[in-house]
Amino acid sequence: MAGVRHRAPGWFLAAAVALLLWGLLGCYSCVQQLRLGADAMGSATAYDRTLYASLPTWYNPCFVVAVLSGTMGAAALLARSRAATALAVVALLTVVIMFGYMFAATDLIAHKGVATAAGFPIVVAAIASGQLWLSRQAARRGWTG
């Protein structure tokens, strides 16, 4: 039956809470980056400051959209709303745009190496992908609606 919500398993709720906490950490990180720039992650090198200063004007707003849509998507999962899927799509797309730009249009990997430059972005993209998968599973199984 369309529109009927089924009881969600405990692991789903635990995953949604974990995603919400991750999103809130992302919001904090975003605010810190907007406030402190390159120094948001600790002592920045001259390279870090130059890289941050050279980011296009759309980069920080894209970061804001990524963390807000991911966080709101996690809250939507907890609220068992179908909006979770659309928000997860937006979050994943903006993450791909941000890191795609960083790796394709800068010399970050050449300067810092693949392991240092790509490690955290891979984790972020994997979590965003996992959130999208979870929201789609929730919709298919009637946990949201």
Rank of each mutant, 00 (worst) to 15 (best):
A38I: 11
V64I: 15
F103P: 11
L92V: 03
P56G: 05
V65G: 09
G70L: 00
R80E: 14
V90D: 09
D39G: 10
L108W: 01
F63L: 12
D48Q: 10
D107C: 12
V96H: 05
M41I: 07
Q32E: 04
A91I: 09
H111P: 07
A40G: 06
I109T: 14
S81L: 08
D107W: 05
V96P: 04
A40R: 06
A84D: 02
L24W: 06
R80H: 11
G73C: 04
G100C: 09
A74W: 07
I97R: 04
Y28W: 15
A46F: 04
S43T: 13
C30W: 07
I97K: 05
G100S: 11
M102C: 03
G70V: 01
A76P: 02
A79W: 15
L93H: 00
V89E: 08
D107A: 13
R35V: 00
W58V: 10
A84W: 10
H111K: 12
L20I: 05
V89K: 02
M72I: 14
M41C: 04
A46P: 11
T106C: 12
L51K: 10
A75P: 02
A40S: 12
V95P: 06
K112V: 02
A110M: 06
V95M: 11
A105Y: 12
P56Y: 00
V90S: 05
Y59R: 06
R35D: 13
L92S: 00
L77W: 02
